[in-house]
Amino acid sequence: MELLKEARNGNKRAIARLITLAESEAEEASHALQQLYAYTGGAHIVGITGPPGSGKSTLTDKIVKKLRKEDKKVAILAVDPTSPFTGGAILGDRVRMSDLNLDEGVYIRSLGTRGKLGGLSKAVHYATKILDACDYDYIFIETVGVGQSEVDIVKTADTTIVVMVPGLGDDIQAIKAGILEIGDLFIVNKSDRDGANRLSIELQMMLDLNAVKSEWTPPINMTVASKSEGVDEVVEKIKNHFVYLQESGELTVRRRQRLETEIIDLVIQKLTTYMTKKMSKEGSYEEELNRVFNKETDPYTLVNKMLNESLK
C-alpha cells in the first residue's frame, strides 16, 4: 500500500490521488480507507456555509492563515454545485485562496457534486476521512448554503459556521430555518456595510426564538474578512466550541451519531449501486418496468420481488 504510506507521510500528490480513487470508488481506495480508519478522529472538522457573495472563501482564507501562524496543518474542501445537465462543473473557489497554494501545511481540494444524488456527501465523506488520517489538524468544508445537500454536508462537521452578509437582498426571514438550527457560530461578514447591525439584531432575535436546549449559545461575530477584521475572534470561537464539545461530551454524541448516519448512507449507496447494476445487467428490468407501466402489476410488488431476489 505504497500510496497510503506516502499519503500518511504528507505527500500531497498521494493524498490527492487517494481522494480521487475514493471518489470514483476504486478497489484500491477501499482497501486504503479500511486501513486509514484507525488513524481518524484527530481533526477538528469545521463546516462553513453561506449564500453566494457572502465572502466565505475570503473568510476561510483568513481563518486558515491565522491557524497557520500557530503551525496547524489545515485542509480545505471547497464544494461547488455541479451542472445537472452535463455532469461537468466549474470550480472557482480556489481563486480567493491562491496564496495558500504554496503553503506546505495547507491542502485545498475542490469537489463537484457530480450530478448524482448523494454523490457529493460521499465524496466529502471520503476526502474528510483521508485528510483526517493524514494528520490535518483542521478540515474546513466550504459549501454554498443553497440546497439541502449542502446543508447535509455541513451537518457532518463538528462545528458549523453560517456566514451572512448585509444587503444581499434576501432578508433574514428568507434564510432557511434549517440553517439556524445547524449553526454553532454565526458571522455577519462585510460588517462595514450598511445594515450590518440590523442583520445582527434580527439574527439574534431569530436565534432566541429558535433556542434549543444546550449549554452552547451560538455567538454572532462581525467580520470584514477582506481586511482581516474580526477574524482572530472567529478563530477563538471555533476553538472554544471544540473545547465545549469535548468537555460536555457532545463531541462523542455527535460523532457517534454521525458514524451511524454515515454507515446507513454507505449501505444505501452500495445497495443502490448494486441493484442498478444488477438490474441493467439482467435486462429483465425493462420488461418488468413495462409490465408495471401497462398496469399488469404494480410498483410495490415489483420492488418486493426485486429485493427478495437480490437478498437471497
Partner: peptide
C-alpha cells in the same frame, strides 16, 4: 463536455499552478 474544471483566476505563478494541479489531482 462533462468535465470537472477548476479555474484558478488571473495572475498565477507557475509554482501556484503546479501546486494546484497536484492538490486537485
Amino acid at each position: 463536455a462533462g468535465m470537472e474544471v477548476i479555474y484558478t483566476g488571473l495572475r498565477q505563478t507557475p509554482e501556484q499552478i503546479a501546486a494546484a494541479a497536484v492538490q486537485e489531482d
